[in-house]
Amino acid sequence: MTEKMGFMPGCSLPSYTPEGVKKTMEYLKQIYPDLGGVQKCCGKGTKALGQEEKFKERFAGLQKDIDDVGIETMIVACQNCYKTIKETSDHTDVESLWTLLPKIGLPEEVRGKAKDSDVVFGIHDSCSTRYEKEIQDGIRWIMSELGYRVEETEHSRENARCCGFGGMIVPANPDLATRVMQRRADDFESDHVVVYCAACRSSMMKVGKKAFHILDLLWGPVVYDDAPAPEDVLSSPAKSWINRYKSKNAVKQVVKA
């Protein structure tokens, strides 16, 4: 049972938080000393546009990278990567970070760290994994391990609503996308929302929610009511690409360390 494990940050996560990528990988490396790493897009965007051929080509490229470095099970922190690999790869297993963490546990130093926080987080589940109960359970487990309080809504879990980013509609129909984002934001009573997809975070930020990626909560400072949410980095292409570049380096560094 010694599958070769690897980590793949995806696109939006490394563009948002190289720090988060680095810390996550460092922790995984403690558990799996021979952890491998791949940074590449899974091709979901290409697929969403309807570019079937191009998607096949691009995924094949990713598959080759995975095979080249001998990764048998890919750990992912993005729900689209999770679904794409699960549906497309015929031999690479995929495991969501959110189901893995409950199995391997959180580092001692973060457990219960937020027990004094006065924030109640609404949980924004990703619509792409609305039927992945284990992932959703994992998120709740992490929140509770950290000590944060959460609020469920009518549109939790399999009833999740899109953050507005899905299906590449932002560039196609921006007005509609904003309405979808606003509607999703209105599902939550709390101003604070925890997400586990960086694109969802950006959507929620655009319509005024204090949105935190769960990795912000895991590795960052304890969040109190008056603290602002991190900047909406994904709204700035320049910053995003710089971050993506930094994340790439982090992947290399951590694996080789």
């Binding site: 070769k4 940074q39 590449k40 995975i66 470095v69 001998g70 290399k252 694996v255």
Partner: peptide, 17 residues
Amino acid sequence: QKLGFSKIFCTKVKGVR
């Protein structure tokens, strides 16, 4: 998407003990 697959932003690293 093109950039997402370009060398500048992609990497693959084999893990070793």
